[in-house]
C-alpha cells in the first residue's frame, strides 16, 4: 500500500501559520481529547471493559503535571521540576493510580466495572475540591507553561518562523501533534499484535480466552493501567492548553463525553477515537463561536439553550443514531464493507 496516502497528514503542520488562537485552542483540545479517547477505546472498545472513571485519570494527569512542575508559594505546593520531567511523572502517576484500581478492574467485567469505576469520579471530585494545597480548590490553579531545554512555550515572542510570531498555543500545537502521533502509533502497535488479539478475544469470548492460555484478569488489569496512562497524558495536554486546571471540569459529564467519543467515532478503533474526539470536542466550541447566528442557541448566560447544552443534545442524538444505524461509528462511514456488524455481545 502506498505511503503517499499519509501525505495529507502534513497539512496538520499548517494551522499555526494561518489560524487564530480560537481555532488553535480548539485543535489542541481535540488532540488532548483524542489521546484520552484512544486510551478509553483500548479499554472499552477493544477489551469490552466499560469505565466511567476516565475523567478521574485525566484529572490525575492534569494535576500531576501542575503539582510536579508548579512552584510552591504561600497557598500552593509544587515540586518545581522541569516541565518535561513533570509530564513523564504525571503520566506515571496516572498509571500508578490505574494500577492501584486494577485488582478491581481485572476481576470485574463489562458493565460491572463501569459501575465500580463511578466511585473513582466521586472520590476524585472530593479530593480535588479539598486538597487546596495541590489543586487550588474550587477556583483551580494556573498551569506552568511547558519548557523544553530552555525553550519556553509561552507568548514571549522569541520565535517567528516566516515572520509569523509564535505564541504559546502555536508552539504547543506541534507538541500536541507529536504526542497524539506517538499515542496513536503505540495503540495501533498494541492492537495489531499479541496483546491486542488477546484483548479482542477477552471481549468476545471470555471463557475461550482463558482456556487458550490468556490470563484474563491480568490482561484486563494491564489494559486498565495503560488506558489510565493515556488519560494522564491527555490530561497533561488539556491542562497545558487550558493554562488553568479547575476541579469542576473533571466530573461525570466529562467521563460521559469520552464514552460518547468512542461510540460516535467507532468502538475499538484508533481512528474512530480521533474522529469521535474531534466531533465531541469541536461541536460545543463551534456552537459557542457561532451562537449569535444560529437559531435556538443563545450565548452563554442569557437564558435559553446554551451552546454547551445544545452540543450535548446534538451528540446525544448522534450516539442514538449511530448505535441504531452505524454500529461501526463514524469511522465505518468510509469503508462500510470492511467493518462487518458485530454478531453478538456476550
Amino acid at each position: 500500500m502506498s505511503k503517499l496516502r499519509y501525505l495529507p497528514l502534513l497539512l496538520l503542520l499548517l494551522p499555526p501559520f494561518y489560524l487564530d488562537l480560537f481555532w488553535l485552542q480548539a485543535g489542541l483540545f481535540v488532540m488532548a481529547a483524542a489521546i484520552g479517547a484512544i486510551g478509553l477505546n483500548l479499554l472499552t472498545g477493544s477489551t469490552g471493559q466499560l469505565s466511567m472513571g476516565h475523567s478521574f485519570f485525566l484529572a490525575v494527569g492534569a494535576y500531576g503535571y501542575v503539582y510536579f512542575a508548579g512552584e510552591s508559594d504561600e497557598h500552593l505546593v509544587g515540586l518545581g521540576l522541569p516541565p518535561v520531567v513533570a509530564i513523564v511523572c504525571a503520566v506515571v502517576l496516572a498509571g500508578l493510580a490505574g494500577l492501584a484500581f486494577s485488582p478491581i478492574a481485572g476481576r470485574l467485567s463489562g458493565v460491572y466495572l463501569g459501575i465500580a469505576s463511578l466511585a473513582l469520579i466521586f472520590i476524585g471530585q472530593h479530593v480535588l475540591f479539598n486538597v487546596h494545597d495541590v489543586t487550588g480548590g474550587y477556583n483551580g490553579r494556573a498551569v506552568p507553561p511547558l519548557e523544553i531545554f530552555g525553550f519556553t512555550f509561552d507568548n514571549s515572542g522569541d520565535v517567528a518562523p516566516f515572520g509569523i510570531p509564535f505564541g504559546g498555543l502555536e508552539k504547543l500545537w506541534f507538541v500536541g501533534l507529536i504526542l497524539l502521533g506517538v499515542s496513536a502509533l503505540f495503540a495501533l502497535g498494541v492492537l495489531r499484535s499479541r496483546p491486542g488479539r488477546a484483548m479482542n478475544l477477552i471481549r468476545d469470548q471470555q471463557t475461550a480466552a482463558g482456556v487458550i492460555g490468556i490470563p484474563v484478569a491480568r490482561t484486563r488489569a494491564a489494559v486498565f493501567t495503560l488506558s489510565s496512562m493515556y488519560a494522564g497524558l491527555g490530561g497533561v495536554l488539556l491542562a497545558l492548553t487550558f493554562q488553568r486546571a479547575v476541579p469542576d471540569y473533571f466530573g461525570m459529564l466529562l467521563a460521559l463525553d469520552y464514552l460518547a467519543m468512542i461510540v460516535i467515532g467507532g468502538l475499538g478503533s484508533v481512528t474512530g477515537a480521533i474522529v469521535g474526539a474531534t466531533f465531541v470536542t469541536l461541536l460545543p466550541q463551534l456552537l459557542t463561536r457561532y451562537s449569535d447566528s444560529l437559531p435556538l442557541v443563545s450565548p452563554p448566560g442569557t437564558g435559553g439553550v446554551s451552546p454547551a447544552d445544545a452540543a450535548r443534545y446534538l451528540y446525544g442524538a448522534a450516539v442514538v443514531g449511530i448505535v441504531l444505524f452505524l454500529p461501526a461509528g463514524l469511522r465505518g462511514l468510509r469503508i462500510p464493507s470492511l467493518t462487518p456488524r458485530k454478531e453478538t455481545t456476550p
Binding site: R197, D204, Q205, T207, A208, T339, P340, K342, E343, T344
Partner: peptide, 10 residues
C-alpha cells in the same frame, strides 16, 4: 467449544 467461541470481527 460446542458453540463457537471465536472473535467474529477478527
Amino acid at each position: 467449544f460446542q458453540n463457537l467461541a471465536l472473535s467474529p470481527m477478527l
